[in-house]
Amino acid sequence: MNTTRELRVRPIVSGTVIDHIVAGQAINVLRILGITGVSDAVVSMIMNVPSNTLGHKDIVKIENRELKEKEVDKISLISPSTSINIIRDYEVVDKYNVEMPSTVEGMVKCTNPNCISNTNEPVTSKFIVQNDPFRLRCLYCEHVISEQIAQYLL
């Protein structure tokens, strides 16, 4: 069992292990991080591995990169269960769970085509994050996004 596990998740020297990603969302995590396949980043992606807490989960490992706060906030919107592990010299030097911010600015495009944030006005989109049920409410037009948030990420 250990051998299989090691084959799947080979340790990295330094960088970030993004763990406990909601199964199926790893590709969207890569999109958030701007990893498109044309960069020279060393990236491993594992999807649908068994997880004690989630049933199944995805994992993304990126070498020699630590995430910015805005990237972590975006990940929290599509996968609130995610944990971030910062690795330096094979050691986990920091580990934390993503936390959904109470507001998000300039991260998500409003789905209302007639919203003022979708015009040439000098404003960025702003959403209030609501829980139970989870949804984003546009601060300007009050439209709500409650599903498939990944496709509206800026």
């Binding site: 007639n114 003022i116 944030s117 546009c138 601060l139 300007y140 037009c141 009050e142 439209h143």
Partner: peptide, 23 residues
């Protein structure tokens, strides 16, 4: 004509904004 116009106008105005209808 756009929804949220008054909310945005508030951010740029130095005087009170009254929304007379936004989209």
């Amino acid at each position: 004509t756009s929804e949220g116009a008054a909310q945005m106008a508030m951010e740029f105005s130095s005087v009170p904004i009254i929304n007379g209808g936004d989209g």
